[in-house]
Structures are given as structure tokens and as C-alpha cells.
Nucleic acid binder design. Sequence first.
DNA 1: TTAGGCATGTAACCCGTTACATGATTTG
DNA 2: CAAATCATGTAACGGGTTACATGCCTAA
Lengths: 189, 189
Amino acid sequence: MKSSGNKTKFLILGLLSEEQLSGYEIKKIVDMRFSFFWSESFGQIYPQLKRLNEEGLIEEVVVEDSENIKKTKKYSITDKGISELKEWLEEPVEKESVRYEILLKMYFSNIISPEVMLEHIREFQISHRKQAKLFEKFQQQLEEYKDVHSNHKDILMVLSFGKKVWKAYDEWCEEVSEVLENRMEGREK
Amino acid sequence: MKSSGNKTKFLILGLLSEEQLSGYEIKKIVDMRFSFFWSESFGQIYPQLKRLNEEGLIEEVVVEDSENIKKTKKYSITDKGISELKEWLEEPVEKESVRYEILLKMYFSNIISPEVMLEHIREFQISHRKQAKLFEKFQQQLEEYKDVHSNHKDILMVLSFGKKVWKAYDEWCEEVSEVLENRMEGREK
DNA sequence: TTAGGCATGTAACCCGTTACATGATTTG
DNA sequence: CAAATCATGTAACGGGTTACATGCCTAA
């Protein structure tokens, strides 16, 4: 068992190191900006916030919101939290284990018709192109609010990863589509 | 809950649709040829084989190995197994949820020194280059035993995915390394 | 006024890895 | 003959998703 393991913890600490957030806001940020390389569910976030609070790595912020008492529980990171975050950031990256269902299906696709496989590829391509457009949109937003994010450059590099890898996905789809189309024609003859 | 969910099941059915295999052999194949896009542990494979056998999707092969009675339990796929495999292959691909720890660390890397982050990138690059070399090796092997695999072309396409995406990884590493090196110099001034 | 978004949380369940147990066979 | 590899399997644990429960607030 590794010292890390629980990465939700560090995602939360990381986000709280930038600004005070509620569980709901954390989820929103992950869905909007991290979705292409990370995901979290409420079932992870809320219990984790509770634990981190108990451990003293974060603390609840008293939201004195002038007029109305909000129901949102905001948290801020403590010094202890920052030092644990730092520790984790300095630890070597565990190698990710991805599971591409589409490649499994591709591998065994001689069992099914090329038409069906082509359809899978098309869907894969469409959904990833949709994501690729979000990269551009997010990058524009970033340029506008350049001063807000102290880690502006780092975010750009994360985005660059997405753009490069998603481009590779797209090119692969093009290549594979062609092969499958040829196969369809060949079979019809 | 989706009708699929349990993908180990279909990996096993897929591999058994090509040849009779034991649990141990399945693990070996996954580790050698699928490792860049799939992984399985014994703790998944053996119980799953048992279940599939009970369900009648696969059956134990009586290994009559002339001289010595082997301890290996080989399985073959049944017609029922093939039709379930086919069904799954035709179902739409669920979108994968990847978690790139390196991108999380990159995102928050303003907290740590560029030297440490650069080290992470280097390790990422090295391990992925190692994998990239295996693509070439595997492709050569494929060309040699072209006739053995009926799905030769499909395997090549899976490999092509790896080559393209891993190339994108490598290019990203180069780009990011440069940025981090500049940052280090900038800070020293 | 009702549907949808905001907001927090818990419980059940599934999936997957790790660790452990066991024993045969091969190789230095 | 000891160490490594082959080979099969189980149990425990942990991480993550889904479903559910609850209640507020806002806009059509």
C-alpha cells in the first residue's frame, strides 16, 4: 500500500490552496475544468471534507454573508494542510492505469461487422471533439482572467496536454475510420 | 447501473474466442500485449473464470497432455459465450474516466519547485518511452506471425492508437520540460 | 406552483488491488 | 538444494459510483 492512494484528498487540498470553496463548488470546478483528466463524485467529496476537517488539514469558514445566512459550508486550507499537499506534490507520480474500452472492442472487432465498429469510432470521435472545443474555450477564459490565477502557466500546460492527446485521438479515429470503410467496401465486392 | 459494468468478463471472453487459455496465460497476455490500455489482476481473473464457467459461457477443457498431467486449467468459450461477447461488442462504448495524477500535480505545481516538477515529467517521459519501444517490438512480432492472428489488422489499429497517443505524451513532456527549465533560470536571476 | 438548480449528506454496492496461502516444477 | 517461476485460488480492504433522502431557492 502506497502512502498516497487517496487522491481525492489532494485534489481538495489543491483547490482549497487557491481559494475557499464548498463541496458543491469543488464538484463544479472538477466537472468544468478538470473533467478531461479527473472526476469526483459527491459521495467522495463530502465525506472527505468531513475527514480533512477532523484531521485539521482544512477548516470550516464562517460565512458572514451580510444579508442572508447561506447554507453553503465553505472550507479553507490550514498550514498543516498545505504542508501535506506539498509533501504529496513532491512524491513521485504513480503510473496511471487506464482502461480504454474502445481498444478492447477494436482488438476483438473481427467478431462484429465493420459498420458497428465504425459507429463506435464515430461516437468516440464526436465526444472527444466536443471536449476539444472546450479546451479552446477554457483557454480563452484563461487569457481574460490571467491575473486571477497565480498558476496561469501551469494550467496552460495541463490544457496543452489535453489538446495534444485529444488531437492524437482524433487522428487515430480518422485513420481507423478509413481502414474500416475499406473493409466494408472490400466485403461488399 | 449499466448492462455491462463488468469488463473483465468480456476481456476473458474475447481472449478465449481466439484460443483456449488458462487464467495464468490470460494474465500474461494482458500484461504483455494489453498493458498500455488494460490491466487485470489474478484476484479478478480466477473468480471471474469460475463464474463464467458456472454460467455456461466458458467450459473447462480436458487437457490430455500426452506424457504428464498438467496442473493448468484451460478454458474454451461456448456458443453462449460468443453470443454474449458479440452483444457486448455491439453495445456503445462507455466513456472512459481517466485520472492523470501528473496533470493534477502539474496544475498545482506552483506550490513546489520547478526542479521537482521537472523530475516528475522526466520520469513520466522515461516510462512512457519504454512503453513506446514495446509498441515497435510488438509490431515486428505481429508482422512475423501475421497468419496466426485472424484479427491482425485490428491489433495493428490498437497499436496505432498507442503509438499516436504515446507520441503526444512525449511531445508534451518536451514542451513542458522547456517551460520548467526556463522557469528555473528565470528564478535564479 | 412546479420544475430545476443549489446544496449537503449517507448507505449500499461493485470493482479492483493487495496480501496471503499453497504447492509443483524448473533452473542455477 | 535453494530460489525463481509457474499456477491457482481466497479474503480483506479500499476506492469510487449510484441511488437515495432532504430541503432551500428561483424562474418559467
